[in-house]
Design a protein around this nucleic acid. Structure first.
Length: 583
DNA sequence: GCCGTTTTCGGCCCGACTGTTTTCAGTCG
């Protein structure tokens, strides 16, 4: 078992002990143990072999025994027994906002409820309001929490969350009491989906800011409101948290609440190794009494990094995936910016399942001042999407040539096709015809349930097809909607490298596929990408922005992204497979 | 359950907010 797996079990033990009403300090010992284990620098194997696990602060005899047993055998009797002694329905009640172990224990012992369903019934029968420590409000809140637990628990696509987040930030910045304001959290790190929104504000007069925040039009429920902290929930179930801090604290709070947790742990370790203590309150010498009196100054977030001998880490990279090491040595490559995009591939028109014509899409691309854009309508196997057969594709190719020759648009149109990869790995259209186009995006749209080895063989075969220019949406995932199909991404990346094939970064906010976690490594090996909006209407061209943020999270520079290149450079790249594009 | 002694027990912690209290316990990040 790995450190992380063992830490998860220690956390679960803490939760179960809490539900059993154990000594709170014992519970904390387990949670602390889990956190210590997660952030342990030494290898667990070494510590156990040398018998020095007990030297680690926070690990006494009981924890050492349990960690060693889990490490060596993968099971722990104490844990299994504990799990058996608590009904699973009770554990799931922890998901309801406002309910913790203590209240659940009261509900269980006095009303005998052992599941969310039974609790819901107890609320309907007004049995909860009469309990000691509960009241009408608690009962209503529990009932509401049960009713909405699906929406409350769910995550929200970054793209959708932004529609809510941006007006809030603008509103905050417009208030005269606000000195500084920013979003924080996973939203600021541009994660593909977020659990909630965080806002940090600097002000010495928080009252009116709090009032404004909870009184916003779209707010459905105010879940907390105090002097410096408030939480609201919107119709979609998305929650937003606001924290107001003094200006002096702003950058520390912003850094802290931007996270990620893993990044913060590494930052605090870095600080400690320099005799400093870092928190949301400030950065002070370890021995100093309070942050308020002894914190160093940070006029910007960059100052915090600089005080720890680090280069500034862009929020997108703060995932605890090597950014501290890089910031402590050479720093980062210059990450791609949205403004670097000069055109896009993989778009649809009314010829297949798009909503706008070739001409309308071209006009929109031109309005965005793109040098070029590419048409890649579906091929005939995508019958549901009105995919093109050979004849219709040839007609479209003719029309594109006419338009390019006419001078009607300054934006150049590349002719392409999003060609289905059939279940056996062959392409849906004739190779000779595909070679007449400027490029081909090969994508899987059927037989998603193939085994990993079949799917991998299928995609690799398509990559090896000389007609393939780029691979579309590698895993077929739809974020929060549909799982990825099984495929060995490493083999696919290697095949793409070996066959001069680009792997797209599909910028549709539901896809963002291939995933950002895979890009740093792939790009280091030399893999190129194209950030493709997969547009089915002009407004979908905006998706490239989401794609650029995903690319930044993958440490990508403009060099790795072919659609940051000029028209001439793109033609040169495409001509490696299509000689007719060479000048 | 851990830690550190005034060394084998007694203290341990983090602040803000809510709801049910009437001075505070429970939840949450």
């Amino acid at each position: 078992m790995t450190k992380r797996e063992i830490a998860d079990i220690l956390n679960e033990i803490a939760m179960l002990l809490e539900l059993k009403g154990e000594n709170p300090f014992k519970i904390r010992a387990y949670s602390n143990g889990a956190r210590t284990l997660e952030t342990l620098e030494e290898s667990l194997d070494d510590l156990i072999r040398e018998g020095t696990l007990g030297d680690v602060q926070g690990f006494g005899k009981a924890l050492v025994d349990k960690i060693e047993t889990l490490y060596q055998t993968g099971t722990l009797e104490f844990y299994e027994n504990l799990k058996d002694s608590v009904e699973p329905g009770i554990v799931s009640m922890l998901e309801i906002p406002g309910l913790g172990a203590k209240k659940i224990k009261i509900l269980h012992e006095t009303l005998g409820v052992s599941s969310i369903e039974e609790l819901q019934k107890a609320c309907e029968e007004e049995k909860v309001a009469g309990l000691k420590g509960f009241g009408k409000k608690s009962q209503d809140k529990i009932a509401e929490g049960i009713k909405n637990r699906e929406a409350y628990g769910k995550r929200h696509l970054w793209w959708r969350a932004r529609e809510v987040a941006e007006p809030i930030l603008e509103g905050l910045l417009a208030l005269p009491e606000v000195e500084k304001a920013s979003h924080a959290g996973s939203f600021r790190r541009k994660r593909e989906h977020v659990g909630d929104l965080d806002f940090i504000v600097a002000s010495s007069r928080p009252e009116r800011i709090m009032e404004w925040f909870v009184a916003q039009d779209q707010v459905r429920e105010v879940t907390a409101k105090g002097e410096t902290k408030a939480s609201v929930r919107f119709e979609s179930g998305l929650q937003a948290d606001l924290r107001v801090v003094p200006l002096k604290q702003f950058n520390f709070a912003l850094h802290h609440f931007t996270g990620s947790k893993d990044h913060n742990v590494l930052m605090r370790q870095r600080a400690l190794s320099r005799g400093l203590s870092l928190s949301e309150w400030g950065l002070k010498p370890v021995e100093a009494e309070s942050f308020e009196e002894s914190s160093l100054d940070a006029k910007s977030e960059a100052d915090i990094f600089n005080l720890l001998d680090l280069k500034f880490v862009p929020p997108e990279l703060r995932e605890g995936r090597g950014e501290i090491e890089a910031a402590g040595s050479d720093g980062f490559p210059e990450l791609i910016e949205p403004s670097a995009i000069k055109g896009v591939f993989h778009n649809h028109t009314t010829a297949s399942d798009g909503r706008s014509s070739l001409e309308e899409m071209t006009a929109s691309a031109q309005a965005l001042r793109w040098e070029y854009w590419g048409v890649a309508d579906h091929s005939k196997a995508s019958f549901q999407a009105n995919g093109l057969d050979e004849d219709r594709l040839l007609q479209q190719l003719e029309r594109i040539r006419e338009l390019n020759a006419s001078g009607e648009f300054t934006t150049y149109i590349f002719s392409g096709n999003e060609c289905d990869i059939l279940p056996d790995g062959s392409l849906d259209l004739d190779e000779e015809l595909l070679m007449k186009l400027d490029y081909v995006v090969s994508s899987v749209h059927s037989s998603f349930s193939q085994s990993e080895s079949e799917m991998t063989r299928r995609i690799v075969k398509a990559i090896e097809n000389p007609a393939t220019t780029m691979l579309g949406h590698l895993t077929g995932r739809l974020l929060l909607r549909r799982e990825a199909y099984q495929v060995d991404t490493q083999k696919v990346v290697d095949a793409a490298l070996a066959n001069d094939v680009v792997i797209e970064l599909n910028a549709n906010p539901y896809r963002l596929d291939m995933d950002w976690r895979l890009w740093r490594n792939a790009a280091e090996k030399g893999l190129l990408t194209s950030i493709n909006p997969d547009a089915h209407a002009p407004e979908h061209f905006e998706f490239v922005e989401a794609g650029v943020y995903a690319a930044r999270k993958g440490w990508l520079t403009a060099e790795s992204v072919i659609n940051t290149r000029s028209l001439q450079e793109v033609k040169a790249i495409l001509s490696r497979k299509r000689p007719h594009l060479a000048d």
